[in-house]
Computed example of a mutant assay.
Amino acid sequence: MRSGISQHMRRIAVTGVALAALGGVGIATAGSASAATGKNGTLESGEFGLYYVTGSSGLVFDLFVSDTNFSGDVFPGTSISANDNTESYRNRDTLTWYVYTNASAGGSEGWLDPGYVGNASSTFKNTISSAYYYDAN
């Protein structure tokens, strides 16, 4: 695992802050968002995106935290499954992301360093079923 506990704790802390902020939505409706919001169809700084087509454009399945199984996930705003249905990536996070061809970090493993943008190789094109912001194996 890369930089182990500190990266994991950062994700937990940011997720907790985001959940707490949701509780205050009725109190304050204006202001700017400072934390990334995964699975909203917009690839923000601090997220990893898997795209439906090559060229890292169009529909994006954006992750801020790990997802162990894409089988119940869809590209936001559509009914298109994200499971085994991505052709390119973009890593806007400061962490290396790991993708796997099976759920729960099974199958083939690949990794994408911070800043990486590109098309999936034949091993990963339309076969990714889970992704982690750390090496899950």
Results as ranks from 00 to 15, higher is better:
Asn69Tyr: 08
Ser121Asn: 11
Ser57Val: 05
Ser34Tyr: 03
Gly72Asp: 09
Ala105Val: 10
Gly107Cys: 11
Ser121Gly: 15
Thr94Cys: 01
Tyr132Trp: 15
Ala33Lys: 10
Ile128Phe: 11
Glu44Gln: 13
Asp73Gln: 06
Ser81Gly: 05
Ser6Trp: 10
Ala82Asp: 03
Glu47Ala: 05
Gly16Val: 06
Ala120Ser: 11
Val60Glu: 10
Asp73Met: 00
Gly118Ile: 09
Val65His: 00
Lys39Asn: 14
Val60Pro: 07
Thr68Ser: 10
Ser104Glu: 13
Ala136Met: 10
Leu63Pro: 02
Val53Ile: 01
Tyr52Val: 02
Leu95Ile: 06
Gly58Ala: 05
Thr68His: 01
Tyr100Gly: 06
Thr29His: 07
Arg11Leu: 12
Asn40Arg: 03
Tyr98Ala: 05
Asp62Arg: 01
Gly55Glu: 02
Ala120Gln: 12
Ser66Met: 04
Ala18Val: 15
Asp93Thr: 04
Phe124Met: 10
Gly26Asn: 13
Gly16Met: 14
Phe48Lys: 05
Val65Gly: 05
Asn102Trp: 07
Tyr51Pro: 01
Ser122Leu: 14
Ser71Gln: 00
Gln7Phe: 06
Trp111Asn: 10
Ala33Gly: 10
Ser66Glu: 12
Ser129Tyr: 10
Ile80Leu: 14
Leu50Gly: 02
Leu22Trp: 07
Tyr134Thr: 12
Ser6Val: 15
Leu63Met: 15
Ser79Cys: 09
Tyr52Ala: 12
Tyr51Arg: 08
Asn126Met: 14
Thr86Glu: 04
Thr15Met: 15
Ser122Pro: 07
Glu109Met: 13
Asp73Leu: 00
Ser79Leu: 14
Tyr51Gln: 03
Phe61Gln: 01
Ala35Ser: 04
Tyr89Asn: 05
Ala33Pro: 01
Gly115Cys: 14
Tyr133Val: 12
Asn137Thr: 13
Trp97Leu: 10
Thr54Asn: 09
Asn85Pro: 06
Val14Ile: 13
Ser66Lys: 03
Val65Phe: 00
Thr123His: 04
Ala30His: 06
Val25Cys: 08
